[in-house]
Amino acid sequence: MTVDIDKTAGPQDTPPGGPEAIKAIPVRHYGRYVSAVIAIAIFVSIIYAFAQGKINWGAVPDYFLDDRILKGVGQTMLLTVLSMVIGIAGGILLAVMRLSRNPVTSSIAWFYIWFFRGTPVLVQLVVWFNLGLVFEYINLGPIYKDYWSSFMTPLLTALLGLGLNEAAYMAEICRAGLLSVDEGQTEASHALGMSHSKTLRRIVIPQAMRVIVPPTGNEVINMLKTTSLVSVVQFAELFRYAQDIGQSSGAPVEMYFLAAAWYLVLTSVLSVGQYYIERYYARGSSRSLPNTPLQKIRANMLSLSNRSGGGANA
């Protein structure tokens, strides 16, 4: 009780002669205390259950930096990055096609999105893998000719499966972004004599990015996790290596936890990257950008060392 009253009475910064500051006893939210206790109790009991279970937790740190695991992490990141590059490039292309006035290109884009969004990635991966039944050879005339089965390496299968599927989702995200830019922007740009492509590149896309980046960040994180599916097409990445180690070392479940921990680490790193990219594209959209965590720390340090902290805001 007394502590709370002290809190409100504490800041005596009302200037003499000014209005008297209100001193009131705050409302007590007993429900909040109860719900906090319940939540903590549930959380602790779950952790306790896992700690008690027949899981050899020691195996996780033992293998955490194992060469095979690290190689798997590398492959997972490579696959994520390349698939997203295919997805984003394809997505922009499809979005522009869908928004074009040419009915043929826009319906082809519609059909593509309809197909790839409407079927599961796992199914698409397996179909790509087995396309050798349809095409025995791949024949690009004088440039390249080979059996389909030797052309379609696991990496290529995985990339096509994940990338082309992603393009369908990215297309919708990009389309929403392009549509979000005010028509007046295009008009102003055209009125200045800028061509369609310059208008798109210099004026519309930079503004669309503000709408495109947040969901794309989600897609990257999703993609990182979806890469765990490609073991079905014989591509070895983090999950596959973790499984292999689990089988040979006799600690299969422990290795699943290890993989989960690695995925968490990677997605956390990606989230930080997303924050900074969003901040970059937010320039001009609000009067002043919020400080980054680093800048906040620096500003605090400055004010601590008793220099007037105004300069840190720049």
């Binding site: 200045l192 004599g193 061509s195």
Partner: peptide, 21 residues
Amino acid sequence: ALKRRDIGMVFQRFNLFPHMT
């Protein structure tokens, strides 16, 4: 576009490019 170069236009709602100074 070539002809529009010679015609300046000022809009009711300004239509400045918000991502540029």
